[in-house]
Every structure is written in structure tokens, then in C-alpha cells.
């Protein structure tokens, strides 16, 4: 259960990678740090302003959506068309800057923090099976977010336009879709999802300026699912979470942290394009 709930967080961060990658062919290495920043905004709302949990979530998502859009508009759009390597380096730089800034802000700093959640440390005992409410809450909230995102991408005009833009950007221009604005909103969406992940992760690892390194686990999750596949990111995240938990339980100390990459290597040897990757479409 702990594995599944941690896997949910990996899945959401991986989802952020995938959204941005599909839309702009950029791998955003700042995704984990967006999550970290989102958690700090939640901290501000929850602890410093004393808002209820649900308002905290909305606040963090909204602020981070704006931050995501601003990053796209101010930092990335000017380097549009530069080699992929340049853009990737810039996202790494953005991550560093965010980590640095967070440590300088009074009340945030380098300490670890915690926010209150409605899922106390309670435990449900259902017919002899012990279920921690905290982790069930994480799973339920992830499922709810995925459902909302599914409905959005499938049925809203903007959601379908986002898909269209990531499938064929040139054609999107021909249709009169405002491609740049759509890409900016994808960054916003992706950062909002990251904030949500940060809030879910907070009870497990606490909030601190280095919590974004969890991106290093979410990245193999995205690749595992076949980089560029949204359902793949979710499944990949869950697999890595579960495998990691099992490795921590049954294997000697140390295996837990490499488990994600071992799984990745094994899967990629069998299916080089990932679980949901498009094997037939791209033959180099």
C-alpha cells in the first residue's frame, strides 16, 4: 500500500514530464522542483495562513499553474527553436534557481516542514487487513485527479486542442489554434499537477528544498511507460512505487533506491520503447 501511494506521486510527476514532452519535445528536468515549490506554497497557505486542506490544494495548484506559465513565457519561449540540449540545460538551471530561492525565503528555508492533512495517522482495519488511511487518501486523490484530467483532455475544446497541438504542431497552426498560448497552458497544467503531487508527498517525506529529487525516480517511470504516453506515465509510476516498496521489504538495504533503474533496464531490454510506447510507428 505504501508502494502504491508513493507510486501515485511518481506517476503524477512523470505525468508532468510527459505532458510537456509531448507538447514541446522538451524534457523538463525542473519537474521535481516544481513539485517542491508547490509543496512550499501549500505550506504557506496551510501553516502560515491557516487555510483548510482543500483551499490549500487549490491555492498551491493555482499559484504553480501561474508559475509554470511564466516559466514558459519568460524563460523558454525566447529559446524556442534552439537545439534540444540548450533547452534541457535551461530547465536544469531553472530547477537549481528554484531550489536556491526557496532556501532564501523566510519561513521556508532549509528546514523540513509538515502540513496537516485530514487523513490522520489513523488506520482502518477491514477484516484483518490493515489499511492506513493516509495512503488510501493519496490513492483516492490521485485517481480523482486522473479522472478530471481524462475528462478534460477527452471532452473540453482546450483539452482536445492541447492533444492536437502535441500531435501535429504545424497542423494546429493551420487550424487557427493559438499554439504558443496552448503550450504555455500545458506548462501551467503540468506545474499544477506537480503541486498536487508535492502536497500528496508531503506527509511521507516532509517538505524541504531537496524533495524535488524524487524527479529522479519519476523520470524512469515516464520512460518505463513509454515517454510520451499519459497512461504509460501513470502505470510506470505505480510499477516503480510498488517494486521499490517490495525491494525495501524483501531485499537488503540499498536495493530500494536502485530498484527503479533495475526495473527500467529490464523493461527496456524487452520493450525498447517502453510499455505503452509506439513500437510500430517510429522505425528511426
Amino acid at each position: 500500500m505504501a508502494g502504491v501511494s508513493l507510486g501515485c506521486v511518481y506517476a503524477l510527476v512523470a505525468l508532468g514530464f510527459v505532458l510537456i514532452y509531448k507538447a514541446t519535445e522538451t524534457v523538463n528536468f525542473a519537474q521535481g522542483d516544481l513539485m517542491m515549490l508547490g509543496a512550499f506554497f501549500a505550506l504557506t497557505a496551510s501553516v502560515m495562513m491557516g487555510w483548510p486542506y482543500w483551499a490549500t490544494i487549490l491555492f498551491a495548484i493555482t499559484v504553480m499553474a501561474v508559475v509554470g506559465m511564466l516559466i514558459e513565457r519568460i524563460v523558454l519561449r525566447p529559446v524556442l527553436g534552439q537545439p534540444a540540449f540548450t533547452v534541457v540545460m535551461i530547465t536544469i538551471g531553472v530547477g537549481y534557481v528554484m531550489r536556491g530561492v526557496v532556501t532564501m525565503i523566510p519561513g521556508w528555508g532549509t528546514d523540513t516542514h509538515q502540513i496537516a492533512t485530514p487523513f490522520a495517522e489513523a488506520i482502518w482495519n477491514v477484516g484483518g487487513v490493515v489499511l492506513p488511511v493516509q495512503q488510501l487518501g493519496v490513492i483516492a486523490m490521485t485517481a480523482a485527479l486522473c479522472a478530471v484530467l481524462y475528462l478534460f483532455f477527452r471532452f473540453s475544446r482546450l483539452g482536445v486542442a492541447m492533444q492536437a497541438t502535441s500531435q501535429n504542431q504545424l497542423a494546429a497552426y493551420y487550424m487557427g489554434i493559438p499554439v504558443r498560448r496552448v503550450n504555455m497552458m500545458i506548462w501551467g497544467l503540468s506545474a499544477g499537477v506537480a503541486a498536487f503531487a508535492g502536497i500528496l508527498l508531503a506527509p511521507a517525506t516532509f517538505i524541504h528544498s531537496n524533495m524535488g529529487f524524487i524527479g529522479l525516480k519519476a523520470f524512469p517511470a515516464a520512460v518505463l511507460g513509454g515517454f510520451g504516453s499519459v497512461p504509460g506515465a501513470i502505470v510506470g509510476g505505480l510499477i516503480i512505487g510498488v517494486v521499490e516498496a517490495l525491494a525495501g521489504y524483501y531485499l537488503p538495504e540499498g536495493f530500494k533506491d536502485v530498484a527503479a533503474y533495475v526495473v527500467l533496464l529490464v523493461v527496456l531490454m524487452v520493450r525498447p520503447s517502453g510499455i505503452f510506447g509506439e513500437t510500430a510507428r517510429k522505425k528511426v
Binding site: 475544446r157 482536445v160 492533444q163 492536437a164 500531435q167 501535429n168 494546429a172 487557427g176 489554434i177
Partner: peptide, 19 residues
């Protein structure tokens, strides 16, 4: 042609009417 390959035919048409 440049259709949107993973959208349905109908969704492609709706994107044509985006404006």
C-alpha cells in the same frame, strides 16, 4: 494532409472549427 493522427475523425473536424 497533416491530420491529427490520434484524434478521431470527428475531433479532427472540430479542431478545424476551433476559431
Amino acid at each position: 494532409r497533416e491530420v491529427f493522427p490520434l484524434l478521431t475523425v470527428e475531433e479532427n473536424l472540430r479542431m478545424g472549427a476551433y476559431t
